[in-house]
Design a protein around this nucleic acid. Structure first.
Length: 276
DNA sequence: ATCCGGTGGG
DNA sequence: CCCACCGGAT
């Protein structure tokens, strides 16, 4: 396998051409690409964590309409945010997003900080999302690796290897980056990565960071989702009411209520359980 | 039944 | 490092 320094400028240019040609002919026109508003980009990136584009598209417009800026989200109730989140999964992201809005409102005057290190200090934002925001909202030339980017680089540069670490991909991402327009380049990489997965079985599986989830059926995720969904429909419920609606083993429901309470997604006062 | 995917707590 | 967290599509 070649070191990134061994590729000629011509080879790098050819790679960029392939990616941009694909983007020009078949790039996706996504709602969050119509804006450069950092808040709107941030919301899309949180939604896109572990969640497919098709599902995010359905929810995104309505969410932005309901919470058009940081302040409106900071001032919203958690239950209104969770109601809007139904169908996206991983409800703790909604809680993080609301907390993030409060922090940005109170400590950054409502402005999303345009730096990876500051973004990563906010709840629900890790390395990938911080870099995505810098690239897509601020057009910064960050070195950014997520699943679609991995797919592209593994397919083109590591075809004969069976496991690839991000530390091996990173220098190539840096070498091939379009420094004149990082935003456009990363959009193109993502779309091309998605296309590659469709016609060869996901090259990203060869990533050292690829993981497989335990099954959803019968999992705590399923129970948590059901509890939150029931409370979004009717917010104050007794434990017994909740058992009836949720339809799982009471001990399992109780355990999950306690876990949700610990995370701050629900509260338990007197004999009632509710979203705070 | 299997696939897809970032963050953060332990 | 390892594992838990959602849900819809296929």
């Amino acid at each position: 396998m070649k070191d990134y320094r061994e590729y000629t400028d011509h080879e790098i240019k050819t790679f960029q051409r392939i990616v941009y040609d694909y983007y020009q002919s078949s790039g996706r026109d996504l709602p969050w690409r119509k804006t450069h508003n950092p808040y709107e980009i941030l919301v899309s990136e949180i939604m896109l964590q572990q969640t497919q584009v098709s599902r995010v598209i359905e929810k995104y417009g309505e969410f932005i309409k309901t919470f058009p800026d940081i302040t409106s989200l900071a001032e919203a109730t958690l239950i209104d945010v969770l109601a809007m989140w139904q169908g996206l999964g991983y409800n703790r992201r909604a809680l993080s997003l609301k907390k993030l809005a409060e922090i940005v409102n109170n400590t950054y005057g409502g402005y999303i900080p345009p730096h990876v290190s500051l973004l990563m200090q906010l709840p629900g934002i890790g390395n990938a999302t911080a870099n995505a925001i810098c690239a897509f909202a601020f057009n910064h030339p960050v070195i950014f690796i997520e699943t679609n980017v991995r797919t592209v680089f593994i397919y083109h540069f590591f075809n004969t290897k069976d496991t690839v670490k991000d530390s091996e991909i990173s220098p190539l991402v840096e070498r091939t980056l379009d420094y004149d327009n990082p935003r456009q380049w990363y959009n193109a990489l993502m779309d091309y990565g998605v296309a590659l997965k469709k016609y060869c079985s996901n090259p990203g599986r060869k990533s050292a960071h690829h993981t497989v989830q335990s099954s959803f059926e019968g999992s705590a995720r399923q129970v948590r989702g059901a509890i939150l969904k029931a409370l979004v429909i009717k917010n104050r419920q007794s434990f017994n009411e909740l058992i009836d609606v949720v339809c799982y083993d009471p001990d399992v429901v109780k355990k999950n209520i306690q876990a949700l309470e610990k995370e701050g997604l629900i509260a338990n006062k007197g004999r009632y359980i509710f979203i705070p």
